[in-house]
Computed example of a mutant assay.
Amino acid sequence: MWLGTTSAMAHPHGWIDYRVTVMVDDQQRVTALEQSWKMDPFQSLTMVEGLEGVTGGESMAQRLDALGHEIAANLATQHYLTHVYDGEQELALGHIEDYTTRLNDNRVEFSFIVTLAEPQPLSDALHWQVYDGTYFIEFLYDDQTEQPIELVNAPSQCHGEVVHADPDPAVVAGVSAIDVTGDAPDGIGKLFSDTGVIKCQKP
């Protein structure tokens, strides 16, 4: 698993609280999504204990930087767990940049920017989901922040909203019964993923 191991329990095995900042250029095009992922307390403790156990004279900040490099490399092979759509069409992503890893209230927080392969016009058709396809890790918009979705450089009449997932109860029951030794169907995480959307009121 790209974030390390956790103890046995039903799916999901951990969670990430996250925020998204939509980056808009001067031509009112969306160019990238800046994301901050805050690992759950147990996963964070596991990571920190692993870093503390590494031999060498590096500081914790340096070890967190190395961890961030490893996470970024792994995410590059998994589409950054980020899926951006224009209507029904999924858009190609560019690359990850400006990533950092730090401790935030004893929780590991990984922040990064993932670009779009081509800038997209700012519109209500643009939306995105962030999820682990196996649902090993659950992604939740951070309810401890007033604005889990922000738009930078966008017109004042535009804002971001979260559309919460509403999976079939039978699917929820089936997935929750899968223990750590079982494999959830690939792509099941999408069914549990909230959707970030852009809403622009007409002037």
Rank of each mutant, 00 (worst) to 15 (best):
M9L: 07
F139E: 08
D40I: 00
N74Q: 15
V20Y: 06
I198Q: 01
V180W: 11
N74P: 00
N74C: 07
G187Q: 04
V22I: 15
Y131C: 06
E49L: 15
Q35Y: 00
T134V: 08
D179P: 04
D17L: 14
H13S: 01
A117S: 14
S36Q: 10
M60H: 07
R102I: 08
L91F: 04
P185T: 09
W37L: 12
A76Y: 05
S176K: 14
I137N: 01
N153V: 11
P185A: 12
I198T: 05
D124P: 03
A177I: 06
V20T: 15
H83N: 11
L191Y: 11
Y141W: 12
Q89A: 14
F110P: 04
K202M: 13
E70K: 13
I178S: 04
V20E: 10
L93R: 02
L151G: 02
V20F: 06
V22E: 00
D183T: 13
L122F: 02
A76N: 10
I16M: 04
P167K: 10
A32P: 03
T100H: 12
A66H: 07
V114D: 06
G68R: 05
P167G: 10
V84N: 00
H164R: 15
T195C: 07
P155N: 09
R19G: 07
V22S: 01
Q120H: 11
A154Q: 09
N106G: 12
T21E: 14
G196R: 01
D143L: 11
T145W: 09
L75S: 05
A8L: 06
E58P: 08
V114K: 08
T31F: 04
V48T: 15
W15N: 07
D132M: 02
G174A: 12
I137M: 15
P12Y: 00
L3K: 00
E109H: 03
T55D: 14
T134C: 02
